[in-house]
């Protein structure tokens, strides 16, 4: 460990929780926007961020009546930042909903544990609505064997799934050593700070572990 490491660690430890949360939320947002499949919902982080946003809105509401120009300017700054945070949270959730809408059955079967309570409620309710609508409008008139919406027989699956081999851009946050691309004989080393275009399936585990981030 050299002097830079020690300094950086000191810098890191001294950063307040709020700043760390902003960094984590930003990273989660970028990852969700880039990754082809749904990623785990960061429960604790979202809880903290949403509580803080709620409190900040209350502060703004309390001080809006104050006409003192100095307080007024402070409010402008606070509100600008509030809007930026709200954009981050909203874009993050919308990116997740887009994936849930695109691969509803796949998410239900394979990554149900990645959903937040309200997302899983949305998914179930939406799927039930769709199923009953299809059933009443045309499916009931089909032969029994053709009524399924999630048929995987006959070589072609009806369940749309994201392509795990999609190329993604990623950056190593730590020295992660050798990465083997599954299905090929290709392997390469990734050092801290390296940016590469790789198949999502090859780095998925490392991204979830926080050793690699998507860009």
């Amino acid at each position: 460990m050299d002097i830079d490491d020690i300094l950086a660690e000191a810098l890191h430890v001294s950063a307040p929780q709020e700043t760390l949360d902003l960094q984590e939320l930003t990273r989660a947002w970028v990852a969700e926007r880039v990754a082809p499949e749904l990623l785990p919902y960061p429960d604790a982080l979202m809880e903290r961020v949403l509580t803080r946003i709620r409190r900040q809105i209350e502060t703004v509401e309390e001080q809006t009546g104050n006409m003192d120009p100095k307080t007024n300017f402070k409010l402008i700054v606070i509100q600008t930042e509030l809007e930026r945070f709200k954009f981050l949270v909203r874009s993050f959730l919308r990116a997740r909903v887009a994936k849930i809408d695109k691969y509803p059955l796949h998410v239900q079967q394979n990554s149900a544990e990645y959903l937040s309570p309200s997302e899983s409620q949305y998914l179930t309710a939406h799927q039930n609505l769709l199923a009953s609508h299809y059933q009443s409008s045309f499916l009931s008139q089909f032969p029994n064997s053709l009524q399924k919406l999630d048929d995987t027989q006959g070589g072609i699956s009806m369940i749309d799934a994201p392509d795990p081999d999609t190329a993604v851009f990623c950056r190593a946050l730590r020295d992660v050593g050798e990465i083997n691309v599954v299905g090929t004989d290709r392997a390469f080393e990734m050092k801290r700070g390296d940016v590469r275009v790789v198949r999502w399936s090859a780095i998925r585990e490392k991204v979830l572990a926080g050793d690699i981030e998507l860009v």
Binding site: D4, A8, H12, V13, R171, L173, R192, G193, G210, E213
Partner: peptide, 12 residues
């Protein structure tokens, strides 16, 4: 620039 060394949550 080199990235900051590993911490609990490396900065980027």
């Amino acid at each position: 620039l080199p990235l900051a060394p590993p911490g609990i949550l490396p900065i980027s």
